[in-house]
C-alpha cells in the first residue's frame, strides 16, 4: 500500500538519547548516595566517636547480615515475588546448626548444615510458589510461621549455646585490619549479585518476568524455573546470614532475628526497587544498606533506644515512596 512506501524503509534509530553517565547522574541511586554522605557528615559532627574505624567496623554488623539477604530479596522482588519468611529461615537454620552442634558436629559440618537448611527452606517456598502457582505473599506468611514454629518446637523457651571457638570467625572474625568477615561477605556478594542481575541473561530474564511474566513465558523464558531459583537463592542467603548471626551471637534462640524481614524489605525498597516488581538495582540496595546502617549507628551513638530507631526505619520506608509521589502531586 502506498502510505508507507513513500518513505524509505529502514530509518536509523539511535541506540541511546541520553548517555549512560547522564542517566546515572539523575538516578535514585545518586540521590540516595547523597543522603548517605550527608548522614555520614552529620554523624561525624554529632559524635566524636563516630569516625573511629573500629567503631565503624563494629557498627557494620547492624546491616551486613540483613544486606546479604536483601541482595537476593531485591532480585526476588524485581521478579514480582516476595519472601516474608527470611527471618524464620534464619531461626530454623540456626536451630538446625544448634542440633548438629549438640550432636557433636565439627565446624565445617555446621556450616554445611546451615547452607543446606537455607536451601531446603528456599526450595520449599519456591516449590509452593513457582511449582504450584500459589501467591508468594501468603505462602511465605505461612512458612514464616512454620519455619519459626519448628524452632519453637525444638527449643521451646530454651537455647543452644556453646558453639565451637572456630565457628566464631564468621560473625566475629576479621579478614584484614578493621574489615570483618561479614563486611567482606557483604562486599563479595554485592559484586556477585550486581553482576548476576545486571550483566547476565539470567538477570535480564528477572526484569522481563517482573514487568510481564506472561510475555516473558511467550518469549521462551522458563519463568517458573527462574522464580524457583530466586527463592532458592533467597533461602541460601538467609542460611548464610544465619551462620553469621549465630556465630556472632554465639547462641540460638527461637526468637532469633525477629523482624528481620521488615528491615530487609525496607532496605530493598529504600534502594529503589519497585515493590510491584520490574525495576531496581543492586547498587541501590548497597547504598540503602549503608544509609540504614549509618542511621542506626548514628542514633545509637546519641543513645536513642532501639524501638525509636524502628520508628525511623518504618517512617523511612513509607517516606521514600511517599515523598516523590507527594512532590509530583504538588507540582501538578
Amino acid at each position: 500500500m502506498s502510505v508507507t512506501s513513500e518513505e524509505p524503509r529502514g530509518r536509523q534509530i539511535p541506540d541511546r538519547l541520553t548517555s549512560p553517565l547522564r542517566k546515572a547522574l539523575s538516578s535514585w541511586e545518586l540521590l540516595l548516595f547523597g543522603v548517605a554522605v550527608a548522614i555520614f557528615i552529620a554523624n561525624s559532627f554529632a559524635s566524636p566517636w563516630f569516625l573511629d574505624p573500629w567503631n565503624l567496623s563494629d557498627a557494620s554488623f547492624n546491616f551486613t547480615e540483613k544486606a546479604l539477604i536483601a541482595f537476593a530479596m531485591a532480585m526476588l522482588i524485581i521478579a514480582g515475588d516476595i519472601d516474608l519468611s527470611v527471618a524464620s529461615i534464619i531461626a530454623l537454620t540456626s536451630t538446625m546448626m544448634g542440633l548438629a552442634m549438640m550432636a557433636g558436629a565439627p565446624m565445617p559440618v555446621l556450616v554445611l548444615v546451615g547452607l543446606v537448611t537455607g536451601l531446603v527452606c528456599g526450595a520449599f517456598n519456591g516449590l509452593l510458589v513457582a511449582g504450584f502457582g500459589l501467591p508468594s505473599i501468603v505462602v511465605t506468611i505461612g512458612t514464616m510461621s512454620l519455619f519459626r514454629g519448628i524452632s519453637y518446637i525444638v527449643l521451646g523457651d530454651g537455647a543452644f549455646t556453646g558453639y565451637p571457638a572456630s565457628f566464631a570467625y564468621f560473625g566475629q572474625g576479621y579478614v584484614w585490619w578493621v574489615i570483618t568477615f561479614e563486611l567482606f561477605l557483604f562486599a563479595l556478594f554485592a559484586v556477585i549479585f550486581g553482576v548476576l542481575l545486571h550483566k547476565t541473561s539470567f538477570g535480564r530474564a528477572v526484569y522481563a518476568i517482573g514487568n510481564n511474566a506472561t510475555a516473558a513465558r511467550f518469549s521462551g523464558i522458563r519463568v517458573n524455573r527462574i522464580r524457583f531459583i530466586l527463592f532458592l537463592q533467597t533461602g541460601l542467603m538467609s542460611g548464610i546470614a544465619a551462620i553469621c548471626l549465630t556465630s556472632r551471637l554465639g547462641s540460638t534462640r527461637p526468637s532469633i532475628a525477629t523482624g528481620f524481614e521488615l528491615e530487609v524489605v525496607t532496605m530493598v525498597v529504600l534502594g529503589g526497587v519497585s515493590i510491584l516488581g520490574g525495576s531496581g538495582s543492586i547498587p541501590g540496595v548497597v547504598i540503602a544498606a549503608l544509609v540504614m546502617g549509618l542511621v542506626t549507628f548514628g542514633l545509637g551513638l546519641l543513645n536513642v533506644p532501639g524501638i525509636v530507631m524502628s520508628i525511623i526505619i518504618g517512617a523511612l520506608l513509607i517516606g521514600v515512596i511517599a515523598l516523590p509521589r507527594l512532590w509530583s502531586m504538588w507540582r501538578r
Binding site: 525496607t266 525498597v269 524501638i307 518504618g314 513509607i318 515512596i321 509521589r325
Partner: peptide, 25 residues
C-alpha cells in the same frame, strides 16, 4: 496513604506497624 498516594498496602502497613508500636514506647 494507599488511596491518595497509591502506595502498595503491604509497604504502608509494614511501615506503620513499627511506627504505631514505636509510638507506644
Amino acid at each position: 496513604l494507599v488511596w491518595k498516594l497509591n502506595i502498595p498496602s503491604i509497604v504502608v502497613t509494614l511501615g506503620t506497624m513499627t511506627i504505631y508500636r514505636g509510638i507506644i514506647f
